[in-house]
Design a protein around this nucleic acid. Structure first.
Lengths: 199, 199
DNA sequence: TCCATAAATTGACCGCGGTCAATTCATCTA
DNA sequence: TAGATGAATTGACCGCGGTCAATTTATGGA
């Protein structure tokens, strides 16, 4: 009995999403204001929150979608067969995740889901990433004396740390890749952990 | 020429700090409100922000101080000589860092310093932690074929990931220690990465 | 065609962090 | 001791995310 969403609601939601994307395209994620979006979309503020739990939920969707585009590309492209190739493959995704401090913060906030039902797009994308990395590890020239899933989660941990350090003036403007390399080399290399340089 | 801070300012600042601590002791970090603190301290809101750059800066101090107490205990106590002991030693600090979602968020936000001059207490404490772990690694029964500093930073990355997953209903209510163990074992064990279980 | 019911939308309002021009207060100098 | 100078404090105000009772709009049944 009338529990279906009406067409106008679908339209409104679509307009809000489109407007938000337009605003973000102009000013970036961090500068997006709910007031600005609803003003441009020509709806009341309350309507926004009728369609999205909060501002973060919208960000989750939009950023998650962008991450998934990146992941699509990764899935399509050739599988990296060693650590340097892996780091290179991860480049675009990490660039996206660190494009703004605000974006990285949103991702961190959504990297774990609070409850079974509210796994957002970002959490899903990160999960997809781990599975992708695990499959690469299985197929490529990496160590195979450990659960690929575990290794993949480790890669994610190192990625997060490297990206966090990216917003830190201290550790120099060393590029992400360079900061990540020593960790991943040691974590993934098939030669049982040896490294003549000790570095 | 009068550029010294006046005694009353010192008093005011001290009263704000004490009041904030009292409020936090009652309600927790996340529920602390600047309005509540200034009301109880009997000062105007503007005064608060004359003494602390923003709310986060105060949190940085208070949480950083608590972390340093933990680190004092770690420095005093016996050095863990293997991975299980290391995990156990880190327990209290991780418990503090994950005592509230809000606390963990503040720590993440301050884990990297934006500029040379504004390294806050939390960033300092985390740096201190890495150096402490590195010294343990050097002294204990851990792998010595890699830079202890690098290994210590890796430990920090795994800690962060384990703690983040702590706020996630998915990965079960598995205790922090258990989530951390497989990573640290593989990362730190002196036997060159082998593990009969592959897990 | 008209009404009942629920979905969709509205906008005034709130909470809370943060700002700043104005004011008060302490200290130095003539 | 009377200005003069800057430190310290004040509180009205703002920006922005989020709420909710009230109102409008769409839809199914008689």
């Amino acid at each position: 009995m009338m529990d279906a969403i009406q067409p106008r609601a679908v339209k409104t939601r679509a307009r809000l999403l489109a407007t938000a994307q337009a605003v973000i395209a102009e000013t970036g994620y961090g500068a997006m204001r709910v007031d600005e979006v609803v003003r441009r979309a020509g709806v009341a503020k309350g309507t926004f929150f009728a369609h999205f739990k909060d501002k973060d939920a919208l960000m989750d969707m939009l950023i998650g979608a962008e991450m998934n585009h990146c992941l699509d590309a990764l899935e399509t492209g050739p599988a990296p067969r060693d650590t340097p190739a892996l780091i290179q493959a991860l480049g675009p995704l990490m660039a996206l995740m660190t494009s703004e401090r605000y974006v990285f913060d949103v991702i961190l906030r959504h990297s774990g889901a609070a409850a079974r039902e509210d796994i957002g797009p970002i959490a899903q994308a990160l999960d997809r990433l781990v599975r992708q990395i695990a499959s690469w590890i299985t197929a490529g020239q990496f160590r195979h004396d450990a659960d690929p899933e575990l290794l993949a989660e480790g890669v994610q941990a190192f990625m997060a740390q490297a990206m966090a350090l990216n917003f830190c003036a201290l550790r120099g403007k060393q590029p992400l890749d360079a900061r990540l390399a020593p960790f991943l080399t040691r974590w993934l290399s098939p030669e049982t952990g040896l490294d003549p340089q000790g570095q």
